[in-house]
Design a protein around this nucleic acid. Structure first.
Lengths: 97, 97
DNA sequence: TTGGTATTTAGCTAAATATCGAAATGATTG
DNA sequence: CAATCATTTCGATATTTAGCTAAATACCAA
């Protein structure tokens, strides 16, 4: 859980997660959205994997990253509830898209 | 807003915020809850101030820190809503203490 | 096998961060 | 005023982080 917060502390990584929220993308597609080098992006992906915020599946030479929304959700909701933020006691399990 | 996430990336600082959620506390009281030195704690307080997550008021020699819950709330809710997490569109404007 | 594409690993630098002890600041109290 | 208390600033060190280029790995196609 500390790793999740560490992962979220970098704007590039937060942006990656936002992109992945729309659809899974390959490392290359993601890298194309940023101005930093591919090795740098690869390091960001590694941080996200360590935090368990994404899943990586390899199809041949390409690797597709997918957001693990439930992990992000658990971290955010857990933190929020320690502060009484947002979601009032009715812990609603809303249909996810 | 990046500063908020950076501030939240350290467990000591998150814990400070949790303590302040219960009541405002002085720098000394807060420091007593941790094993690190006072200068180190002072640096953490500075990060929290820069992120605008706390307010500091000085009464004589002592400084009382107070959580700015609305700032934390805005950051978390803003982030969460980008992911459709938790709090459904009912953007409630809660009165802050 | 050779060449090309996708991605990561290795090795590095520069900058940021966390930590400390010592000293400084500022208020309070004898 | 001098001592003391609360807190921060200073100066130093160690660690972590983000970034780069170059090289390695893995796969695919011809």
């Amino acid at each position: 859980m500390n790793r999740v917060f560490k992962a979220l502390s970098d704007p590039t990584r937060r942006r990656v997660l936002e992109l992945l929220r729309q659809r899974p993308m390959t490392a290359g597609e993601l890298s194309d959205q940023f101005t930093v080098s591919k090795p740098t992006m690869s390091a960001h992906f590694a941080v996200l994997r360590e935090a368990d915020l994404v899943d990586a599946d390899k199809q041949g030479a390409t690797i597709t990253y997918r957001l693990k929304l439930s992990v992000l959700e658990d971290a955010i909701l857990g933190f929020s509830s320690a502060f009484g933020i947002g979601t009032e006691p009715t812990l609603r399990k809303e249909t996810q898209s």
